[in-house]
């Protein structure tokens, strides 16, 4: 059992296998008094996770642990998005896409384009939280196969859905276009009151944060197209 701090929330993890503690090592905190909630998963949950693919029980436990965290954390004003988040000049942009579209490929191109001005806050599974009217993204130990994650926070300027195309173009999405796309990138709580908190956070995000659709090739021009549009516009 150990405590981690994610997006400012202290969580107790009651683990069975050492893999999850190793994964979380940079996020471990010793402020035991302030733990918001405890997560643990059963052998049955690990069995079910393992039936999906040939992974170790420790790895499967860590996946289940994060899912439990994500379902409970909206109560503390924090929510999860399946996204690759890149920061450029101190401001972050979250890219979301159907799996296999290449959101990690796209954010890696930002690193190439901006060099030391850019970094990936989390490559796959970040947490988000509003602080004083601004949405921030937070690093987590869970981050996708490339292992890009930094234990930090960064103001999130825009959310962007990504599709592959022949040419590079970007446009704003309206609420009608956003909702289906956004619900594909979340994990919903089961408990009624957690669900209420979660939907309030999504509602606020849709109302306050600009959302875009980038149609792109794998190119430097794709980065320029995305950055030029998203970094300039500030109004929702």
């Amino acid at each position: 059992m150990f405590n981690i701090e994610l997006a400012g929330v202290v969580i107790t993890v009651n683990n069975r296998y050492p893999a999850v503690e190793k994964l979380c090592r940079e996020y471990i905190t010793h402020e035991t008094a302030s733990s918001a909630f405890t997560v643990e998963v059963s052998d049955e949950q690990i069995d079910r996770e393992q039936s999906v693919g040939d992974f170790s029980r420790g790895y499967c436990e860590s996946v289940c642990i994060y899912r439990e965290i994500v379902k409970k954390i909206p109560k503390y004003g924090v929510f999860f998005l399946h996204a690759s988040v890149v920061e450029a000049d101190g401001v972050s942009y979250a890219f979301m896409a159907k799996s296999g579209t290449g959101k990690s490929t796209h954010t890696s191109l930002w690193l190439k384009h901006f060099g030391e001005r850019a970094r990936i806050i989390n490559g796959d599974k970040p947490l988000l939280r509003f602080v004083d009217g601004q949405l921030y993204v937070y690093g987590t130990p869970w981050c996708g196969k490339e292992g890009y994650q930094i234990n930090t926070s960064s103001p999130l300027k825009a959310l962007c859905f990504l599709e592959r195309g022949e040419k590079n173009s970007i446009r704003r999405l309206n609420d009608n276009e956003i909702v289906n796309r956004l619900f594909h990138q979340v994990i919903m709580p089961e408990n009624a009151s957690d669900m209420e908190d979660f939907l309030k956070l999504l509602d606020r995000t849709v109302k306050e944060v600009p959302m875009w659709l980038l149609t792109c090739t794998i190119s430097d021009e794709a980065v320029v197209t995305a950055y030029e549009a998203m970094s300039k516009e500030t109004q929702k």
Binding site: N176, V179, F183, A192, E196, L199
Partner: peptide
């Protein structure tokens, strides 16, 4: 089942026991 708005859209989601059977949302 609960109906809430997300932005200008109306969405229905399942909670509690229902969420085990119904995964996703209705607009």
């Amino acid at each position: 089942f609960i109906l809430r708005s997300v932005g200008s859209e109306n969405v229905v989601v399942a909670v509690g026991e229902q969420s085990r059977k119904f995964n996703g949302m209705i607009r």
